[in-house]
């Protein structure tokens, strides 16, 4: 029992991180075998940086994630404010309309997108991929921002107007700073959803434009190349660095606040 008590959390984290650890270790494996350790090497990284197709798809993934999450954050924040100002049936209807795409199976969304693109004669490629990503990221931003708006003291907006602020100024100088954490959370959620996505991307792209998940999928059919381990390791380390950066930012912000409160 004592042993379980002490190691329970450890075990959970072991199960969570063991696969990633193995991925990272095998990205340095000299043997092409997926089961045996053949000594340390950086060869796969060297090969990766010569593989233009793979690098392009990594580049696509990141560019799409950044652009889609920024656009979705802008549109989503405005939409959330709009929904927040609605009342009664209209409001609950809009909220349900927002949740539906989140609950909808990806494959349904993906096929619907494809059909819509074909119907509207939008050529499938970078643009269609971007449009699809912006669209499926949008609800995640809205549901991140809405709770922050609900927490607001409704009189704060009135107070800003009372002190002479135009409605526009009231939103920018009073409402926005207070929902910023929600906007930021929505942005991160959108960013990771976009990087994560395979199904929707697969059905909405074309013209040889592919992101990382599509490239890996097509490579995997010919057997997993350890290059993939290398690119995924880079991606994982990138996300890890981003997380550290955000945590540090949040910490310094809250300690700044505390100092201000002394």
């Amino acid at each position: 029992m004592r042993f379980l008590k002490k190691s329970y959390l450890g075990l959970i984290f072991l199960f969570l991180y063991a696969p990633i650890l193995i991925l990272i270790i095998f990205s340095f494996n000299a043997s092409k075998s997926r089961g045996a350790w053949g000594g340390f090497t950086l060869d796969w990284y060297r090969q990766l940086f010569q593989d233009d197709a793979l690098l392009t798809s990594l580049y696509n993934t990141i560019v799409i994630a950044i652009v889609a999450s920024i656009v979705a954050t802008l549109l989503g924040t405005i939409a959330a404010i709009g929904i927040y100002r609605m009342k009664g049936f209209r409001k609950s209807f809009m909220i349900n309309l927002t949740y539906l795409p989140i609950l909808n199976p990806d494959i349904v969304t993906a096929i619907s997108f494809m059909l819509l693109l074909i119907y509207l004669k939008i050529p499938r490629g970078m643009l269609s991929l971007l449009l699809a990503h912006i669209t499926f990221c949008l609800p995640f931003v809205i549901i991140s921002v809405l709770p922050k708006l609900r927490q607001l003291d409704p009189q704060i907006y009135d107070a800003a107007l009372d002190l002479g602020a135009t409605p526009k100024r009231a939103y920018f100088s009073v409402i926005l700073p207070q929902i910023l954490p929600g906007i930021f959370a929505g942005f991160l959620l959108a960013f990771t959803m976009s990087i994560d996505d395979f199904v929707i991307s697969y059905f909405t792209t074309g013209n040889g434009v592919s992101n990382l998940s599509i490239s890996i999928y097509s490579m995997a059919r010919r057997g997993i190349n350890p290059k993939i381990n290398a690119v995924l390791t880079i991606l994982f380390v990138g996300i890890l660095a981003l997380m550290f950066f955000i945590n540090r930012r949040v910490n310094t912000n809250s300690s700044k606040k505390e100092r201000g409160n002394v």
Partner: peptide, 21 residues
């Protein structure tokens, strides 16, 4: 509109801006 009136209000729950000192 309220932002052009020469009146100011002290609100019931003060409605201070929490992000400002």
């Amino acid at each position: 509109p309220s932002f052009k009136r020469r009146v100011n209000t002290v609100f019931q729950n003060y409605a201070l801006f929490p992000h400002l000192n």
